[in-house]
Simulated scan of single mutants.
Amino acid sequence: MLEAVLFDLDDTLVDQETASRAAVVEWAAGLGVDGGEVAGRWARVSERHYARYQRREIGFGEQRRERVREFLGIALSDAEADGLFAGYLERYEAGWALFDDAVPALRRVRAAGLTVAVFTNGEQGQQRRKLERLGLLPEVDLMVASSTLPAGKPDPRAFRHAVERVGVDASRALMVGDSLHKDVLGARAAGLMAVLLDRADSHAGVEVPRITSLDDLTLSST
């Protein structure tokens, strides 16, 4: 019997991609970097170094510095890189916004008597600020950030620690997220049920439970 639903945060409940794209285009233009590939290049650089952080190869602050150094292609001291990243971060945080289907989905799950959790690969402090600013704190029972765990998604250890904090057995928890690899396959490897939120409808051939909107999430989606 299902007892808890764990929602990913970025690009599941919050439109992180749009916020990041707009922020980096404006930030980079101010540094004299422009062109159609700016947002895509930043996304690729960010993914690479954030994955290193999730594997605990580097710290949270260092992955930010490495993103700036690689993106700009110049040598920077830690202080210089931190200062430059702050310009991006200010713009990024200003762009945080919920998807329209986020709060209704959380409320439906809670109304069904289930525990509502957010399980994010983000850093705990930043992700809590995100929940606060967007009014999500009253809608969830708890948040688990992988920055407080020995590993991040998709490592099965991360999911096992998360359900332990939620207080349910893995077999009675459902993970909902936008990443096939990090959210769905990682969760299933740890014994959770999982649903892929495929907003772009780009994984039609994948044989996993899949929805294109949180409006379509039902407790029988698994």
Rank of each mutant, 00 (worst) to 15 (best):
M1L: 05
L2D: 03
L2W: 04
D8F: 00
V14W: 08
Q16C: 05
E17S: 13
V24G: 14
W27R: 06
W27K: 07
W27C: 10
A29Y: 06
L31D: 09
V38N: 14
A43L: 12
A43P: 01
V45T: 12
E47D: 12
H49Q: 12
H49N: 12
Y50N: 11
R56G: 04
E62Q: 14
R65E: 07
V68C: 08
L72K: 08
E80H: 12
A81P: 12
D82R: 06
A86E: 14
G87K: 10
L89A: 13
Y92C: 02
E93L: 14
W96E: 03
L98C: 08
F99K: 05
A102H: 07
V103G: 03
G113M: 11
Q127H: 09
Q127I: 06
Q127S: 12
R128C: 11
L131R: 11
E132D: 15
R133E: 06
G135A: 09
M143W: 00
V144F: 03
A145F: 01
S147V: 01
A151F: 04
A151D: 02
G167C: 05
L185F: 06
M193C: 13
A194I: 08
R199G: 10
V208H: 13
D216K: 05
D216P: 07
T218G: 15
S220A: 15
